[in-house]
Design a protein around this nucleic acid. Structure first.
Lengths: 328, 328
DNA sequence: AGGCCGACTGTATGCGCTTTCATCGACCAC
DNA sequence: GTGGTCGATGAAAGCGCATACAGTCGGCCT
């Protein structure tokens, strides 16, 4: 079913059919009705590729995330999706699983689609790629990675500040031996979190940090906790890089018969919904995903926002039931 | 950056550039190298729209899900994604939030993209739409909805069987007053689960069922549980339509000081990873998502599989710690 | 030497659509 | 009546690529 076929059956030119499809210019209402009727009868749906090829424009934006299974990314994605739909845009999602190669593939694909904009909510990133993207004419938003460049907007979270709040809080509860549970230790933005924690070690006398790394999943959190909790002396607090891993850690603690928070404190990061539903409810650091999502939408789908900006979002400590005074 | 521009700079014709891009036919290796070099220099990436318009074919499949936030859908999506990537395909995801209108929009969009195939893992579905899809020449797979039609493959889960196992198990534990927690009670495949439960009421003497409906989220599960647990006499078991809502219900039970499973049994459905990490670990019914995902991949990306099939997958009871003998 | 084959490359057409630009009445003011 | 304006429509030129087809050229067989 092509536009041409529709035009033929409606006894009009292809231009007219195109006009009623893009309900912009003037078409006599009787003609419009006739065309619409044929479209209906034929179940015609325009070839999107031909549309964007001929039209040059695109009503789609791309969103690349590191791990769609992690509710943090999912939340941001959903907010962007809602904003896009509200503005009449579609969104194409790509998932990299923290792989740089998949990131490159995804970005090339996004560029190939000639999208209206691309948001990369990822932890892995390569400077050359950023340069390449910067050279394109489409607006790009980075979260977590990337440095200010022409045509590129950056959103970053003050992990250092968030981690400092967490450390100070745990220290004041008497914790001196803490375990850090992370994933993909080599990736820049994630490294920043560990580093912040390590820096705190210097500030707070007697604070010792051990780390364990595993996959960014519930099971990964559990495995990492298993390693850390087997050490002797055992850490009295587990700081997890995100809520998902923290819930995994919680599970492991319970399996070992450790009471949380009496025997062990556990903290998350992100404050996803799951954190409230964990048992016990998770103490975590809130990252305002709503704000991040809206910023992305503004940057990609509005012309009246300046590019080449940098937004810094400030995380906040959320104390719930998984933390308490250090034992003994 | 167009193919033309690349051809000009490499002093070859566009046909040759196209050849090296689609690494099929023979190109002298020195020419190939020259073209590749220019492509590299220009950061050229082919216009996907032009490619699929000219080429006719498409290396993408579409996956439509009802609620990407629910790990069940996410798991299936990820399996399909992996299979697609392995076969050199891309996947376009669409999320309907259980809205029929969004389903229609999504399907139209998928058709507009002239994809190689579409999978609809959704609970909402309209017969007219199925007919329309059936008329297209692209392979389509439905999960949960849809009736056998030409060119359409169906995958369905024997909910009735799964629910029967669950009911029988709870009955044998002495539960006579059970609550059912669901969402979108009006949608066909979901209605089937409640109906199975209701049918069981007839079979098992003295079994009473009350239902509550809320959103398909952790919070929805909690709210529904709140309603059910406020009743008097209180149900001794809560059967939840899926694991996510069950975890929400678990949370509500705990808030009310009810011990699970001593005071209250709770069951989920789907057996997502989260079910093992719930506290207590959730008794649930396993749906083989791996098998579903693979079937979808086979149907959409291989030519040697017959269409117009119907696959029925058999769910299995997984007993964990959230169920026990009815109190008193 | 003539012919043929195969590796390589260029030319030209069209995929299905959008978008100028031109056309053609109809209608109004003068 | 003439010129001008505006609404409605058609004709046609691409958008960037794939590909059928037609060369070109060297090597090799007879």
């Amino acid at each position: 079913m092509t536009l041409q076929e529709v035009a033929r059956r409606a006894r009009v030119s292809t231009a007219t059919v195109s006009r009623v499809l893009n309900k912009g210019t003037s078409v006599k209402s009787s003609t419009r009705a006739r065309v619409l009727k044929v479209i209906q009868e034929l179940n015609y749906s325009p070839n999107l590729h031909a549309q964007s090829l001929a039209g040059g424009r695109s009503r789609s934006i791309g969103v690349i995330v590191s791990n769609i299974e992690n509710p943090f990314f999912l939340d941001v994605y959903k907010i962007v999706e809602a904003g896009a739909h509200a503005a009449g845009y579609e969104v194409i999602m790509a998932n990299t699983d923290y792989s740089s190669e998949r990131l490159v593939t995804s970005i090339r694909l996004m560029l190939g689609r000639r999208l209206a904009g691309v948001a990369a909510i990822v932890s892995e990133m390569d400077t050359a790629l950023i340069d390449e993207l910067s050279g394109q004419r489409i607006p790009v938003v980075f979260y977590d990675v990337g440095t200010p460049r022409p045509n590129i907007t950056n959103i970053r979270v003050d992990y250092r500040g968030g981690m400092a709040k967490l450390t100070s809080y745990l220290y004041s509860l008497g914790h001196r031996r803490v375990g850090y549970i992370g994933h993909h230790a080599a990736l820049g933005p994630i490294k920043e979190r560990v580093q912040s924690l390590r820096d705190a070690t210097a500030k707070y006398a007697g604070l010792e940090v051990e780390t364990a790394t595993d996959a960014d999943t519930l099971e990964g959190g559990r495995q990492a906790a298993r390693v850390l909790l087997a050490r002797s002396p055992r850490p009295t607090a587990l700081i997890c890089v995100n809520d998902v891993m923290a819930v995994g850690a919680l599970r492991e603690a319970r399996s070992r018969g450790l009471r949380v928070p009496e025997d062990l404190s556990v903290t998350g990061f992100d404050n996803v919904t799951l954190a409230q539903f964990a048992v016990p409810a998770l103490t975590t650091v809130h990252i305002p995903r709503e704000q991040i999502g809206r910023t992305i939408c503004d940057c990609l789908m509005r012309d009246d926002v300046p590019r080449e900006q940098e937004f810094v979002v400030e995380p906040e400590l959320v104390v719930r039931d998984s933390t308490g005074p250090a034992p003994r």
